[in-house]
Amino acid sequence: MSFSNAMVTGGKIEWAKLTLNLFKSDEAEYETGRAVVWMEMLNNGQKPKRWNKPTKKGTGVTFTALKDHKEYEVAIGELQGHINVINKEYDLNIKLKTN
């Protein structure tokens, strides 16, 4: 059986370190972790579609597969928008570095 034409078009990932406990104890740290996870997902060709509420087990993220570089650039812009919001809200200084 050959899977050479198979392609992942989406799915769901559970990020175990982004827990409800972290969210309740340090929202800024949770949001920083969320930004790091978001960047990691984009670098793996995954665009977050929906972030579930944090639970004791972590935060679930539904994603779609990025189709091309243009879609990646748009997704980076969305991440930068989120970073701008959390920088302002939590007085952070997160900078997004892309190649």
Rank of each mutant, 00 (worst) to 15 (best):
I13W: 09
Y72S: 01
L92I: 05
E31G: 11
G45H: 13
E78G: 07
H69F: 12
N44G: 05
K24A: 12
A65R: 01
E27K: 09
V61G: 10
V37C: 07
M39Q: 08
N87I: 02
S2F: 02
K97F: 02
V74Y: 12
M1H: 11
P54I: 01
D91P: 15
E73M: 09
E29V: 00
N5G: 11
F3Y: 15
G33A: 06
K70V: 03
S4W: 11
N99C: 05
F63Q: 02
V37M: 04
L18H: 00
R50C: 10
F3H: 15
A75H: 08
Q46R: 10
E29F: 03
L79Y: 03
E40R: 10
Y90F: 07
V8Y: 06
K88E: 06
L96Y: 07
G60Y: 05
W51I: 14
I94S: 09
N52C: 12
Y72W: 03
R34I: 11
L20N: 02
A65G: 07
G45V: 13
A6G: 15
A75K: 00
Y72R: 04
T55A: 12
E27I: 06
K56C: 12
V61T: 12
E29K: 01
L42S: 06
K97A: 03
N43L: 15
W15H: 10
T19A: 02
L66D: 07
M39D: 07
N52D: 12
K70F: 04
T19I: 03
L22F: 00
Q46E: 10
L42Y: 00
G58V: 01
A6L: 13
W38I: 01
L79N: 09
E27H: 05
E78P: 11
L79W: 00
Y72V: 02
S4E: 14
L66I: 12
A6R: 10
L22C: 01
D26G: 01
Q80L: 14
N21P: 06
A75T: 07
T19R: 02
E40G: 09
K56G: 14
A65T: 11
K95I: 11
M1P: 15
N44P: 08
G33R: 05
N52V: 08
N99K: 10
G58K: 00
L66G: 02
